[in-house]
Design a protein around this nucleic acid. Structure first.
Lengths: 206, 206
DNA sequence: TGACATACATACAAGCATGTAGGTAAAGTA
DNA sequence: TACTTTACCTACATGCTTGTATGTATGTCA
């Protein structure tokens, strides 16, 4: 078989990532073999080992690709309402929950992260990277809460870190339940009600 | 080597389950081999295959054992406050969160369920059983919320199913975050504050 | 246009993990 | 006490997955 041009090679890489994302979310990370991924992308394992060092490396790359759309929409929100941190948090949360429903990429990604992988400490494992990303995300949320308190959108009896962890937890928890069993409730209709309920709880804080 | 008495055999079985629980929560389900489990229990794979059909069967058994203490304490709470469904829910939620911190069994179990296994549809997989158990648990919570509304502890503008899914999500979300990184926040100190915040949100419901 | 680098495919070796068949010695039982 | 069953252990066959080494035909650049 013939060598591909650089563009074609990038396409192959992209196809591999797509296949991995889909297969991981369908069969789980551990039960998906590199051969499965290669076949699904229409190539052989040779291509996988050309583009990535190994499975772990591929997962890392997958992460980078999957997080981009979310970060982009967050950035957008920041510019849409620069002086309304609480509204921004609300919008961010609802955005994530809606993306999980409507955006295949986000849904697959969340499904992998919450349901289809095992977090285990090992040298070169991806748990570390995930922890770091989560920490960053949490700092961001905490920052928004801090601003909200400074602007008087929330009482200063609210601890920003506390509020941030809670919001993060609710989002993950809702995604976990919905992805586990989408027929349980309509994420689409109730997402914002959940977020508003939590914010109402924070507002009445003691 | 010599044959064991029936009691000793039961002990072996129990040791195997203990070892499995510990190893699963340390290394993840997929990366833990039956040999690992047997060795950790001081026996060989022969013993595993004697007591269980295969890995899946072992996981099922593990589940049954791990859920018991939680169900027991729930039952206890039901009798402690038969006429305070909301208080019961609060106590249940806080109980779970505290058990995760203080009870090794519960913590290991939650860790496996939330972080160390992959949920994948397959013939004979344990996802089905898990879904069923969750559904039962959710019905129970929903029932309590219904009662709370009937007794006027909550407005009837609150949808019990909505409230139940939310509570369940928060609990799982908090456990997920805390198990992923226990240094992030003190579950012990803040668990009840989180639950109260959510309940406050429900109370101010629109 | 030739030489080198690229983007894979193919082939091979090696290590596990699983399932199972057969062995064994003591416990249980009549 | 003799026979059967139990509770394992040992050994083996099998399949799968990974990693790597090598082949190869083509893009790419001087």
């Amino acid at each position: 078989m013939a060598r591909k041009t650089k563009e074609e090679a990038q396409l192959t890489r992209s196809l591999l990532l797509d296949a991995a994302e889909r297969l991981f979310s369908e069969r789980g990370v551990a039960r998906t073999t590199l051969n499965d991924i290669a076949s699904a992308a229409g190539v052989t394992r040779g291509a996988v080992y050309w583009h990535f060092q190994n499975k772990t490396d591929l997962i890392h790359a997958l992460w980078d690709q999957a997080v981009l759309p979310l970060e982009a929409s967050f950035e957008e929100l920041l510019q849409t309402m620069p002086n309304d941190p609480l509204g921004r948090l609300r919008a961010k949360a609802i955005t994530v929950l809606n993306e999980v429903v409507h955006n295949d990429r986000t849904r697959n990604f969340m499904s992998i992260v919450l349901l289809k992988c095992e977090y285990v400490e090992e040298a070169g494992g991806w748990r570390e990277g995930y922890l770091t990303k989560r920490a960053e995300c949490l700092t961001e949320i905490t920052g928004d809460f801090k601003q909200a308190i400074e602007l008087g959108q929330l009482t200063d009896s609210v601890d920003p870190q506390f509020a941030a962890v809670g919001l993060f937890s609710i989002i993950d928890g809702l995604c976990f339940h919905w992805l586990m069993n989408p027929s349980l409730f309509s994420m689409e209709k109730q997402a914002q009600k959940y977020i508003d309920t939590y914010f109402a709880g924070l507002a009445s804080a003691g």
